[in-house]
Design a binder for these strands. Sequence first.
DNA 1: GACCAGGCACATC
DNA 2: GATGTGCATGGT
Length: 218
Amino acid sequence: MNIAQNIYRKLFKEFGKQHWWPGETTEEIIIGAVLTQNTNWGNVVRAIQNLKTADALSFERILRLSPQKLSNLIRPSGYFNIKEKRLRSVVQYFMERCGADFEQLALIPTEELRRELLSVHGVGKETADSILLYALGRAVFVIDAYTMRIGRRHGFLNEDDDYESARAFFERALHKDISLYNEYHALIVRLGKEFCRPKPRCENCPLNRGEFFMFQKT
DNA sequence: GACCAGGCACATC
DNA sequence: GATGTGCATGGT
Protein backbone atom coordinates (compact mmCIF):
# COMPACT_ATOMS: atom_id res chain seq x y z
CA MET A 1 0.00 0.00 0.00
CA ASN A 2 1.58 3.29 -1.13
CA ILE A 3 0.82 6.82 0.06
CA ALA A 4 -1.73 7.63 -2.63
CA GLN A 5 -3.64 4.40 -2.00
CA ASN A 6 -3.53 4.97 1.72
CA ILE A 7 -4.87 8.50 1.44
CA TYR A 8 -7.69 7.26 -0.75
CA ARG A 9 -8.67 4.60 1.73
CA LYS A 10 -8.71 7.15 4.49
CA LEU A 11 -10.77 9.67 2.54
CA PHE A 12 -13.29 7.10 1.40
CA LYS A 13 -13.68 5.81 4.94
CA GLU A 14 -14.19 9.37 6.17
CA PHE A 15 -16.53 10.72 3.49
CA GLY A 16 -17.90 7.77 1.52
CA LYS A 17 -19.03 7.87 -2.08
CA GLN A 18 -19.37 11.36 -3.57
CA HIS A 19 -21.55 10.60 -6.61
CA TRP A 20 -19.63 12.73 -9.08
CA TRP A 21 -19.91 14.37 -11.55
CA PRO A 22 -23.18 16.10 -10.67
CA GLY A 23 -24.87 16.31 -14.07
CA GLU A 24 -27.40 14.22 -15.92
CA THR A 25 -25.99 14.13 -19.43
CA THR A 26 -22.58 14.16 -21.06
CA GLU A 27 -23.33 17.57 -22.51
CA GLU A 28 -24.29 18.93 -19.10
CA ILE A 29 -21.06 17.62 -17.57
CA ILE A 30 -18.98 19.30 -20.26
CA ILE A 31 -20.88 22.57 -19.85
CA GLY A 32 -20.36 22.38 -16.09
CA ALA A 33 -16.64 21.71 -16.53
CA VAL A 34 -16.24 25.04 -18.35
CA LEU A 35 -18.53 27.04 -16.08
CA THR A 36 -16.88 25.85 -12.87
CA GLN A 37 -13.48 27.31 -13.76
CA ASN A 38 -12.29 29.19 -10.66
CA THR A 39 -15.86 29.36 -9.44
CA ASN A 40 -17.93 27.98 -6.60
CA TRP A 41 -20.04 25.05 -7.77
CA GLY A 42 -23.16 26.59 -6.27
CA ASN A 43 -22.89 29.42 -8.77
CA VAL A 44 -22.53 26.93 -11.59
CA VAL A 45 -25.74 25.24 -10.50
CA ARG A 46 -27.54 28.57 -10.88
CA ALA A 47 -26.14 29.06 -14.35
CA ILE A 48 -27.06 25.54 -15.41
CA GLN A 49 -30.54 26.01 -14.02
CA ASN A 50 -30.86 29.17 -16.11
CA LEU A 51 -29.85 27.23 -19.21
CA LYS A 52 -32.31 24.49 -18.35
CA THR A 53 -35.15 26.94 -17.79
CA ALA A 54 -34.37 28.58 -21.12
CA ASP A 55 -34.40 25.10 -22.68
CA ALA A 56 -30.79 25.73 -23.71
CA LEU A 57 -28.95 23.00 -21.83
CA SER A 58 -27.70 21.30 -24.98
CA PHE A 59 -24.91 21.90 -27.45
CA GLU A 60 -27.26 22.51 -30.33
CA ARG A 61 -29.31 25.08 -28.41
CA ILE A 62 -26.26 26.86 -27.07
CA LEU A 63 -24.89 27.49 -30.55
CA ARG A 64 -28.18 29.11 -31.52
CA LEU A 65 -28.04 31.65 -28.69
CA SER A 66 -26.66 35.13 -29.28
CA PRO A 67 -23.52 35.98 -27.30
CA GLN A 68 -25.53 38.42 -25.23
CA LYS A 69 -28.26 35.91 -24.46
CA LEU A 70 -25.81 33.16 -23.57
CA SER A 71 -23.63 35.33 -21.35
CA ASN A 72 -26.72 36.55 -19.57
CA LEU A 73 -27.87 33.00 -18.83
CA ILE A 74 -24.50 31.96 -17.42
CA ARG A 75 -24.01 35.22 -15.52
CA PRO A 76 -24.21 33.62 -12.03
CA SER A 77 -21.15 31.47 -12.72
CA GLY A 78 -18.95 34.57 -12.96
CA TYR A 79 -16.57 35.69 -15.74
CA PHE A 80 -19.62 35.44 -17.94
CA ASN A 81 -18.19 37.32 -20.93
CA ILE A 82 -15.11 35.10 -20.94
CA LYS A 83 -17.02 31.91 -20.32
CA GLU A 84 -19.51 32.69 -23.06
CA LYS A 85 -16.67 32.48 -25.58
CA ARG A 86 -15.06 29.47 -23.93
CA LEU A 87 -18.29 27.53 -23.72
CA ARG A 88 -19.12 28.33 -27.32
CA SER A 89 -15.70 27.18 -28.54
CA VAL A 90 -15.87 23.92 -26.57
CA VAL A 91 -19.38 23.20 -27.82
CA GLN A 92 -18.33 24.04 -31.35
CA TYR A 93 -15.36 21.68 -31.11
CA PHE A 94 -17.53 18.75 -30.07
CA MET A 95 -20.21 19.51 -32.64
CA GLU A 96 -17.63 19.56 -35.40
CA ARG A 97 -15.72 16.58 -34.03
CA CYS A 98 -18.60 14.19 -33.41
CA GLY A 99 -21.88 16.08 -33.63
CA ALA A 100 -22.31 15.56 -29.91
CA ASP A 101 -22.48 11.82 -30.56
CA PHE A 102 -19.76 10.94 -28.09
CA GLU A 103 -19.74 7.26 -29.02
CA GLN A 104 -17.93 8.31 -32.15
CA LEU A 105 -14.90 9.23 -30.06
CA ALA A 106 -14.55 5.74 -28.65
CA LEU A 107 -11.66 4.73 -30.88
CA ILE A 108 -9.64 7.91 -30.41
CA PRO A 109 -6.72 7.31 -28.03
CA THR A 110 -7.00 9.27 -24.80
CA GLU A 111 -3.75 11.17 -25.27
CA GLU A 112 -4.81 12.26 -28.74
CA LEU A 113 -8.18 13.42 -27.45
CA ARG A 114 -6.42 15.28 -24.66
CA ARG A 115 -4.20 17.11 -27.11
CA GLU A 116 -7.20 18.12 -29.16
CA LEU A 117 -9.07 19.39 -26.12
CA LEU A 118 -6.06 21.40 -24.96
CA SER A 119 -6.00 23.16 -28.32
CA VAL A 120 -9.57 24.40 -27.84
CA HIS A 121 -9.90 27.97 -26.60
CA GLY A 122 -10.77 28.03 -22.93
CA VAL A 123 -9.69 24.46 -22.21
CA GLY A 124 -6.67 24.07 -19.95
CA LYS A 125 -5.40 20.93 -18.29
CA GLU A 126 -7.93 20.66 -15.52
CA THR A 127 -10.90 21.31 -17.77
CA ALA A 128 -9.59 18.88 -20.40
CA ASP A 129 -9.00 16.17 -17.83
CA SER A 130 -12.35 16.73 -16.13
CA ILE A 131 -14.06 16.31 -19.49
CA LEU A 132 -11.99 13.23 -20.30
CA LEU A 133 -12.68 11.54 -16.98
CA TYR A 134 -16.19 12.59 -16.05
CA ALA A 135 -17.80 13.14 -19.44
CA LEU A 136 -15.94 10.71 -21.68
CA GLY A 137 -14.98 7.99 -19.22
CA ARG A 138 -11.23 8.05 -19.81
CA ALA A 139 -8.79 7.10 -17.05
CA VAL A 140 -7.11 10.46 -16.49
CA PHE A 141 -6.43 11.70 -12.98
CA VAL A 142 -7.74 15.24 -12.52
CA ILE A 143 -5.58 17.72 -10.62
CA ASP A 144 -6.96 20.94 -9.23
CA ALA A 145 -6.04 23.71 -6.80
CA TYR A 146 -7.19 21.59 -3.87
CA THR A 147 -5.00 18.68 -4.91
CA MET A 148 -1.92 20.88 -5.09
CA ARG A 149 -2.63 22.59 -1.77
CA ILE A 150 -3.42 19.36 0.06
CA GLY A 151 -0.46 17.59 -1.50
CA ARG A 152 1.98 20.31 -0.49
CA ARG A 153 0.61 20.72 3.01
CA HIS A 154 0.75 17.02 3.68
CA GLY A 155 4.10 16.57 2.04
CA PHE A 156 3.31 14.11 -0.73
CA LEU A 157 3.79 16.84 -3.33
CA ASN A 158 6.67 19.30 -3.42
CA GLU A 159 6.48 23.06 -3.83
CA ASP A 160 7.93 22.77 -7.32
CA ASP A 161 5.52 20.08 -8.43
CA ASP A 162 3.23 21.25 -11.21
CA TYR A 163 0.06 19.88 -12.80
CA GLU A 164 1.77 17.16 -14.82
CA SER A 165 4.09 15.94 -12.08
CA ALA A 166 1.18 15.79 -9.65
CA ARG A 167 -0.85 13.82 -12.17
CA ALA A 168 2.08 11.47 -12.66
CA PHE A 169 2.32 10.97 -8.91
CA PHE A 170 -1.25 9.70 -8.71
CA GLU A 171 -1.29 7.78 -11.97
CA ARG A 172 1.92 5.96 -11.10
CA ALA A 173 0.65 5.04 -7.67
CA LEU A 174 -2.84 3.88 -8.59
CA HIS A 175 -4.37 1.23 -10.76
CA LYS A 176 -5.65 2.68 -14.00
CA ASP A 177 -9.25 2.65 -12.91
CA ILE A 178 -11.86 5.13 -14.08
CA SER A 179 -14.15 4.83 -11.08
CA LEU A 180 -11.19 5.09 -8.71
CA TYR A 181 -9.96 8.29 -10.41
CA ASN A 182 -13.50 9.61 -10.42
CA GLU A 183 -14.05 9.02 -6.74
CA TYR A 184 -10.57 10.09 -5.67
CA HIS A 185 -10.75 13.55 -7.23
CA ALA A 186 -14.22 14.10 -5.79
CA LEU A 187 -12.96 13.10 -2.35
CA ILE A 188 -10.04 15.51 -2.62
CA VAL A 189 -12.44 18.34 -3.42
CA ARG A 190 -14.58 17.33 -0.45
CA LEU A 191 -11.54 17.32 1.82
CA GLY A 192 -10.35 20.64 0.45
CA LYS A 193 -13.69 22.34 0.95
CA GLU A 194 -14.06 21.15 4.51
CA PHE A 195 -10.54 20.98 5.87
CA CYS A 196 -7.90 22.44 3.59
CA ARG A 197 -8.84 26.01 2.81
CA PRO A 198 -6.13 28.64 2.34
CA LYS A 199 -6.87 29.94 5.82
CA PRO A 200 -7.31 29.13 8.49
CA ARG A 201 -5.00 26.19 8.08
CA CYS A 202 -6.68 22.88 8.70
CA GLU A 203 -6.79 21.58 12.24
CA ASN A 204 -8.98 18.52 12.32
CA CYS A 205 -8.02 17.21 8.91
CA PRO A 206 -8.78 13.49 8.61
CA LEU A 207 -5.38 13.01 6.98
CA ASN A 208 -3.68 14.13 10.17
CA ARG A 209 -5.18 11.33 12.13
CA GLY A 210 -3.62 7.92 12.68
CA GLU A 211 -0.90 6.74 10.36
CA PHE A 212 -0.99 9.93 8.31
CA PHE A 213 0.37 12.19 10.92
CA MET A 214 3.89 11.46 9.75
CA PHE A 215 3.27 13.02 6.35
CA GLN A 216 2.03 16.34 7.57
CA LYS A 217 4.21 19.39 7.17
CA THR A 218 4.16 22.19 9.70
C1' DG B 1 -15.30 44.60 3.58
C1' DA B 2 -12.05 40.93 2.72
C1' DC B 3 -11.51 36.46 1.24
C1' DC B 4 -12.57 32.51 -1.44
C1' DA B 5 -14.29 29.40 -5.20
C1' DG B 6 -13.66 22.29 -8.81
C1' DG B 7 -8.79 28.17 -14.36
C1' DC B 8 -7.42 30.14 -18.41
C1' DA B 9 -5.44 33.28 -21.93
C1' DC B 10 -2.62 36.86 -22.70
C1' DA B 11 1.02 40.48 -21.85
C1' DT B 12 5.44 41.41 -20.36
C1' DC B 13 9.98 40.63 -18.86
C1' DG C 1 9.70 29.87 -19.60
C1' DA C 2 8.55 32.11 -15.49
C1' DT C 3 5.66 35.50 -13.49
C1' DG C 4 1.80 38.86 -13.26
C1' DT C 5 -2.87 40.31 -14.38
C1' DG C 6 -7.79 40.55 -15.88
C1' DC C 7 -11.93 38.26 -15.73
C1' DA C 8 -17.03 38.55 -11.99
C1' DT C 9 -20.60 36.31 -9.37
C1' DG C 10 -22.35 34.91 -4.80
C1' DG C 11 -21.41 32.78 -0.12
C1' DT C 12 -19.04 33.19 4.37
